[in-house]
Design a protein around this nucleic acid. Structure first.
Lengths: 267, 267
DNA sequence: CTACCATACCGTACGGCATACGGAGTTGCA
DNA sequence: TGCAACTCCGTATGCCGTACGGTATGGTAG
C-alpha cells in the first residue's frame, strides 16, 4: 500500500494539533481520550505490525472505542500519520556541539538510523512538504547549530544538513526493507536464497554478468552468518562505511571555506 | 496506503515471469493479453495517477478486460509490482566505463535520479530483498564494472556501488515527494506556504530556534522562484551538491587503495 | 469427426478499508 | 430549566485484493 498523504486538510487544524494547541472547551461530556493517546496507540500498532496493519478500526479497537470516535480527536488518517511522525522525532537525542561538526553530524545520522529501525513505518510515509511540527523544527535547529560558524553560508548549512539526512534515509530504506523482509515473508534470508538459487542459476549467465560472477566468487556476498541477524550487522557496517565517506567529502568541502565564526550570512 | 510486498509468492513462478520464461501451451483459447501488456498498462497508470490509483480493477479497465482476467497473466498485485520495477529499470542507460569510475558512478546516479522522477512510484514500493530480475542484474553488472580494477576488494566494490545508489534513493525520496506534493494536494508551494506562514509564526519562537531564524533571515530558504518548477531546480542542485561531496569522499578512499588491476579478489 | 480437457475469461462474493452523515447521550452555563 | 456544545458511534457508501467456480474456446488424441 501507499499512503496518500497529508497537507490536504485544514492547515490551521493540522498545525494546532502538531503543536498541541488544544484547549478543551468546557461544554460537553468529558473526553475519554486525547490526541496523545490516539497517537501513542497508533505508533504502538505501527511498530508492532507495520504500517499496512494500521487502520482506524485497529487503532480504535486498541483504545476500546468505536472507530468513528477517533475522528473527534484527529481529522483523518493522513493527519494522524503526520502526528505520529513528529511525535517519534522527539525520541532522537540532539547533537550538542561536543566534538565539532563532524561528531555532531555523525550523531544525528546514527540517531536517524536508529529511529528508522525502531519505527520502520516512517520510511513508508511519503515525505512531501515539511510538517512544520515542533520536534521536526527542534531537530533541524539542533543540527543546523552543529554546522554553524564553520565558514558555511546559510544555504550551504542547509545543503550539508539535508545531505546527511537524505543519505541516511536512503540506506535505511534499503536496510530496513531487507531487515523486515523476514517478518513480511515469513522466510529467513537463508531459506529465501535456498529457494531461489537453483532457479536463478537457470537464468543467470556468467558470460552476460562476468563481473557479478567474479565478485560473487570472491565471497563478497557471503556475510558472516551469525544469529540470523547477519543482514542487520552487514547493513550497519555498510551504513557506517558510507557515512565515513560522505563526511570525508564534506570535510574536504568545509576545508575550502574560510574557517571561523562567519555565521550563516557569509557568502 | 502501503504495499505489503512481494517475495511471498511462488519463487519459481516469480522468476519465470521476471525473465519472461513463458512458453504458451498450445491448448486452449488464444490469450488476448500478455504479461508485457499488463505490466505496460500498470506502469502507465502508476505514472499518470500514482501508486495509490493503481488497482487491479483500474489496470483491467485500461486493458478492456475483466478484473479477474489479469490473474491469468500475473499471480497477484505484489508480483505485478515486481515486474513493473524490473521493467522500468531497463530504461536506464548503462555506464560504459568512459571517463573512469567517477564519471561512471555519476552517470548511474543521474540515471537513477531521472528514473525516480519519471516513475515516482518506485520509491513507494519497499525494497525488501533483491528481485533477481534481468534488468536489475544487468544494471548491477554494469555499475560493478565501473569500479572494477581500481584497487578495491569485491566487498568494497559492492559497498561503493550500493552507497551511491542508496544516497540517490534518499535524496530522490525527499525531492520527488516535494515535487509531487503539488499534485497530491492541489496546492502550489507558494499557496501552501502562504496558508501556513501566519499560523506557523504563532508557534515559531525565535528564541527557541535562533539558528533556524538566522538562516532563514539569510535567505537560504528563498529559492529562485521560476515557473513554479523552482522546487525541482533546487532539488537537482541539492542532489548534485551531495553527489559531488560523496564522490569526493569515495575518491579519497580509492586513493588509499593500491591502484591497478587488482580485481575483486584483492584484500 | 468427435470428444476431451487445458486454458482464457470473468461474475459474484467476502472481508477489509476510510470516512460522510446523522442521531443519541452528556455536561456546563445562561 | 433548557439549550448549546460536545463526545461517542451505528450505519452506509464506495473503494480495495482476490478466492471460487462457471463457461467459452480451440488444439489434439482417438
Amino acid at each position: 500500500m501507499t499512503t496518500d498523504y497529508s497537507g490536504s486538510g485544514d492547515p490551521a487544524r493540522s498545525l494546532q494539533l502538531l503543536w498541541r494547541d488544544t484547549r478543551h472547551p468546557t461544554r460537553g461530556p468529558r473526553p475519554g481520550l486525547s490526541v496523545d493517546k490516539v497517537v501513542a496507540a497508533a505508533v504502538e500498532l505501527a511498530d508492532a505490525e507495520g504500517l499496512a496493519a494500521l487502520s482506524m478500526r485497529r487503532v480504535a479497537d486498541r483504545l476500546g472505542v468505536g472507530t468513528m470516535s477517533l475522528y473527534t480527536y484527529v481529522p483523518g488518517k493522513a493527519e494522524l500519520l503526520d502526528l505520529m511522525l513528529d511525535t517519534v522525532l522527539a525520541e532522537e537525542a540532539r547533537p550538542d556541539g561536543a566534538g565539532g561538526w563532524r561528531a555532531g553530524l555523525e550523531l544525528r545520522a546514527r540517531e536517524d538510523w536508529a529511529l528508522f529501525h525502531r519505527h520502520p513505518w516512517i520510511l513508508q510515509i511519503t515525505p512531501g512538504r515539511s510538517l512544520l511540527g515542533p520536534n521536526e523544527t527542534d531537530l533541524f535547529e539542533a543540527t543546523l547549530r552543529v554546522v554553524d560558524g564553520i565558514g558555511l553560508s546559510g544555504t550551504e548549512m542547509v545543503l550539508v544538513v539535508n545531505l546527511v539526512a537524505d543519505y541516511t534515509r536512503g540506506v535505511a530504506d534499503t536496510a530496513v526493507g531487507a531487515a523486515q523482509a523476514e517478518r513480511r515473508t515469513g522466510m529467513s534470508d537463508e531459506e529465501w536464497w535456498k529457494a531461489r538459487e537453483p532457479l536463478f542459476d537457470r537464468y543467470f549467465d556468467p558470460d552476460r554478468f562476468p563481473t557479478v560472477t567474479r565478485v560473487a566468487a570472491s565471497g563478497a556476498f557471503e556475510q558472516p552468518i551469525g544469529e540470523g541477524q547477519y543482514t542487520v550487522a552487514w547493513a550497519r557496517e555498510s551504513f557506517e562505511f558510507g557515512l565515513g565517506r560522505l563526511l570525508d567529502g564534506i570535510e574536504a568541502f568545509v576545508a575550502t571555506r574560510p574557517a571561523g565564526p562567519a555565521g550563516p550570512d557569509g557568502v
